[in-house]
Amino acid sequence: MRFHLLGSLEVVDDGEQVELGGGVQRAVLGYLLLHANHVVPTSRMLRALWDEHAPLTARKMVQNAVSGIRRTLAAHGDDARLHTHSPGYRLQVDPDNVDMHHFRHLVEQGRTAIDAGSAQRGVALLREALDLWRGRALADLVERGTMWSELAAVENERLLALEDCFDAELACGHHREITPELEILTETEPLRERLCQQFMLALYRSGRQVDALKVYRRTRMALVDGLGIEPGRELQQLQHLILEHDSSIQAPMLVA
């Protein structure tokens, strides 16, 4: 079986989606997958599912969900196992069968390639990793109000991978190709200065200096209004270099 977290929770066996039961069972499975191969204390599970407002039957509901997950795993003859392990539970699963872990492995390979000077190879690996995403991590649970810190952390991993990919794309001279994607991302993530810096650079290298400076002003306004801070030194320096048409920010000369 393959376990998909990067989007709505899915379990796929031989190309067919597996029935995962009700909301509590899906939430328990999702949380255990986020911590696959590690012991998750029952008390932590209860806080994750209900904050400080767990019903009196919460522990029994988790036990029932665990039993349902075990039946599902057994029915499909998978190597994954859900163990009771004091003080809670441990979902034993091959990381290669979890899309989140596959994503992390590809990202690591991509960054290694970039560090070794193979930007094109790095872009290909990072794009392969990012293509695993089908929406927000555990999107179906998020729609029901789940606000786990682990999900925010996984989303940040996606954005960092995107930023690394854009840096490599810029190094390959792909500024025009990535401009539309950066336009959307900087509107949804206006406080991420690195994305805004990349967008400004892509615009400038595409001959759109005025638009690049507009992005700086928009970003500065978002930071001042939202966080009460000025843009960081790197973003301010890029604005200065754009105004001066500095040669250091021109598109790289690529060898054919």
Rank of each mutant, 00 (worst) to 15 (best):
147 M>A: 15
64 N>M: 11
205 R>I: 15
73 L>G: 12
39 V>Q: 08
41 P>I: 12
166 F>K: 01
147 M>T: 07
65 A>E: 11
244 E>W: 03
20 L>G: 08
217 R>S: 06
239 Q>R: 15
122 G>D: 03
205 R>N: 15
73 L>Y: 05
173 G>A: 08
138 L>S: 08
134 R>L: 03
138 L>P: 00
25 Q>I: 06
154 V>Y: 06
10 E>N: 13
94 D>R: 12
27 A>R: 10
130 L>D: 08
41 P>L: 15
212 A>E: 07
200 M>L: 09
19 E>P: 04
4 H>E: 13
148 W>Y: 01
73 L>N: 08
22 G>C: 07
229 I>A: 03
163 E>M: 13
74 A>V: 10
250 Q>K: 03
57 T>A: 13
192 R>P: 00
52 E>V: 10
106 L>R: 03
20 L>K: 02
158 R>N: 08
26 R>D: 06
24 V>E: 14
211 D>E: 08
196 C>R: 10
53 H>V: 10
92 Q>K: 11
100 M>E: 00
36 A>D: 00
163 E>T: 13
222 A>L: 11
11 V>Y: 07
39 V>P: 00
161 A>L: 11
185 L>W: 07
194 R>P: 11
144 R>P: 01
170 L>G: 10
94 D>F: 14
77 G>L: 03
102 H>E: 15
221 M>P: 00
158 R>I: 02
64 N>G: 04
107 V>G: 02
82 L>K: 01
45 M>L: 11
215 V>P: 05
65 A>Q: 07
73 L>K: 01
147 M>G: 10
103 F>W: 07
192 R>T: 09
61 M>H: 09
198 Q>F: 03
12 V>R: 03
141 L>I: 04
199 F>C: 12
237 Q>C: 04
132 L>C: 05
204 Y>L: 09
194 R>I: 14
104 R>W: 03
94 D>G: 03
125 L>Y: 06
242 I>P: 06
178 I>C: 00
23 G>E: 12
11 V>R: 07
173 G>Y: 07
190 P>D: 00
228 G>R: 06
152 A>P: 01
139 A>W: 01
176 R>Y: 04
51 D>V: 08
22 G>Y: 08
197 Q>D: 12
213 L>I: 02
185 L>V: 00
86 S>R: 14
103 F>G: 11
18 V>N: 07
2 R>M: 06
107 V>E: 05
79 D>P: 14
232 G>Q: 15
198 Q>H: 11
11 V>P: 06
24 V>F: 04
2 R>K: 11
160 L>D: 05
38 H>L: 13
161 A>C: 15
224 V>N: 02
180 P>F: 00
222 A>R: 14
122 G>L: 02
45 M>K: 00
251 A>D: 14
28 V>F: 04
61 M>R: 14
